[in-house]
Design a protein around this nucleic acid. Structure first.
Length: 491
RNA sequence: GCUCCUGUGGUGUAGUCCGGCCAAGCAUACUGCCCUCUCAAGGCAGUGAUCCCGGGUUCAAAUCCCGGCGGGAGCACCA
């Protein structure tokens, strides 16, 4: 019996058969859409493992279906990964190796481990269900070689495919003579019309992983049944086999990731674009003010498990809040303003700290004329109540009508009554804050998912860079999106 | 339907392989206190789990065995 060692582990669980310095991981996205939180999870896990073992990490664009790929997606994925701070030792495309796949295919054909099938699509599917082999599977290597040739110039798309000789009676349906190659005439963004016989995912990943030196290959758990095929293909080709691992897919409640759902929303104008702050795309998360560090910590906190989970968005926010708090400038902001006139105010300019504890300097705010307060801060106000206007002074309410009047009493910080933020009406900057809510509720689009609030903030807002993280005091963290728009990050 | 995977507090996990240190750790959420010119951050404390259910093995089970049940996925010329 082995000695049981129990230690508190930090981060991901150790890998089986992993040697320090000899681990190679890989992230193989298909360039068929914008990167989202699901990509981030896979990319981060691979990145972390390669770092943990001082190994290498390969980025491989899995572009084996020219009908789906677009150049802009290559770029978007790269931008997203850069943003996440992930570096790769090697970047390549699966399509770089097409000729090589052809060689491997011929090898299989010669060994009679694959065959060209010219059956109709629905017949193939029917045979799979009923575990019946078709007559094509009986053809000999010579005939298959001939069929393979014809796939390049004679057959039309759909007329012939290459199938792996698996096991039509296997309980694992992916083993029932799966497809290895098919004909696609669409133009590939990189290779244009150079090829029309394309390898399937299963064939390409197995070979690529093996050839790229990948020692540990991870994918989300819906691929689990394909492991058997993966290994069998490599065995048939007598190639080195990486270790496979699976993790659960990461998705947030009510935040769909699939293009099938998102595309119509964008077409209908219900969602502005892939960077709409309600979406779980990397662009959207960034725009909303979620930091890459938070995404990484969050991903790691989910662990490496196969249990299907409902991801806790509030935990992502908690990580983010801690990260962002230290460098978010504190600004005043008021909603649905009520006017307050203060008599005998002693200052015309006040200095306000940009951060309560960190040294982020101060800003000067000129105070003249009326002051704006959030209506929710004054709704229960009575005459003679006292308020502290933060950074300005304490006031005592003298009258409450359509406007409120008050008189300055003193500037004592140490008071027990409410301390509230304020804005000087003369230099108030009008701003729109976008507050994203859950996009879907019970599979139905949430019409109120994007709340817009008109507010007033300090003119200092204009001096901040776009993308600056702000904490509107007593409201929450927001990210400057533009001159007159900010996006609510979280409380 | 068949096959595979999965099931620990409201939520996400650690622990399960190698039974005892686990009347179950951490994080998040919530509550209270402290700190604070914020309803943030920080500090402290608290609420909250018969470890899906039922049997069995054992001195001892979240952990092993058997049988149920719940959830997810695959059954594409997508990846």
């Amino acid at each position: 019996m082995k000695e049981k060692v129990k230690e508190d582990r930090i981060g991901l669980p150790p890998l089986e058969d992993a040697e320090q310095g000899n681990v190679v991981t890989r992230f193989p996205p298909e360039p068929n859409g914008y990167p989202h939180i699901g990509h981030a999870k896979a990319a981060i896990i691979n990145d972390e493992y390669s770092k943990m073992y001082g190994g290498k990490n390969v980025l491989r664009f899995d572009d084996t279906n020219p009908e789906n790929e677009r150049l802009e997606y290559w770029a978007a994925i790269k931008v997203g990964l850069d943003w996440l701070g992930i570096k790769y030792d090697k970047i390549k495309n699966t399509s770089d190796d097409i000729e090589l796949f052809y060689d491997k295919c011929k090898d299989l054909l010669n060994q009679n481990l694959a065959y060209v099938c010219t059956c109709k699509r629905d017949e193939i599917s029917k045979n799979r269900k009923e575990m019946i082999s078709c007559k094509c599977s009986e053809s000999d290597p010579k005939q298959n070689e001939d069929g393979w040739d014809k796939m390049f110039h004679k057959y039309k798309p759909g007329e012939a495919i290459v199938r792996f000789r698996g096991n039509m009676e296997s309980k694992n349906t992916v083993m029932r003579d799966p497809i290895l190659f098919r004909i696609i005439d669409a133009r590939h963004p990189l290779l244009e019309k150079k090829y029309r016989v394309w390898p399937s995912y299963d064939f390409a990943v197995a070979i690529e992983d093996s050839l790229d030196g990948v020692t540990h290959a991870f994918r989300s758990k819906e691929y689990e049944l394909r492991n058997e095929l993966y290994y069998e293909i490599l065995d048939a080709l007598n190639m080195r086999k990486p270790k496979m691992g699976e993790f659960s897919r990461l998705e947030f409640k009510g935040m769909p990731v699939s293009k099938r759902i998102l595309k119509p929303l964008i077409d209908d104008g219900k969602v502005s674009w892939y960077d709409d702050p309600r979406l779980p795309t990397l662009e959207a998360l960034k725009r909303k003010g979620i930091t890459p560090e938070a995404i990484r910590k969050f991903t790691l906190s989910l662990g490496f498990t196969k249990s299907n989970t409902l991801a806790p968005f509030d935990s992502l926010e908690a990580f983010n809040r801690k990260i962002v708090d230290g460098n978010s400038i504190r600004l005043f902001m008021v909603k649905s303003p009520k006017i307050l006139t203060v008599s005998n105010l002693p200052h015309s300019v006040v200095k306000l700290p940009n951060h309560p504890s960190n040294d982020m300097g101060v800003r000067e705010v000129t105070v003249e004329g009326d002051i704006l307060l959030s209506s929710e801060d004054v709704k229960d106000l009575k005459i003679n109540d006292q308020l502290r206007l933060m950074g300005l002074g304490n006031v005592k309410i003298t009258s409450i009508n359509s406007k409120i009047t008050a008189e300055f009493t003193n500037d004592n910080h140490d008071v027990s009554f409410r301390k509230i933020q304020w804005i000087c009406q003369k230099n108030a900057h009008k701003l729109k804050i976008l507050i994203p809510h859950q996009l879907f509720i019970d599979d139905k689009f949430n019409e109120g998912s994007l709340e817009e609030v008109d507010v007033y903030t300090e003119p200092h807002y204009l001096e901040l860079k776009d993308g600056a993280e702000i904490q509107f005091i007593r409201f929450g963290y927001c990210r400057k999106d533009s001159m007159n728009q900010a996006i609510f990050t979280h409380k």
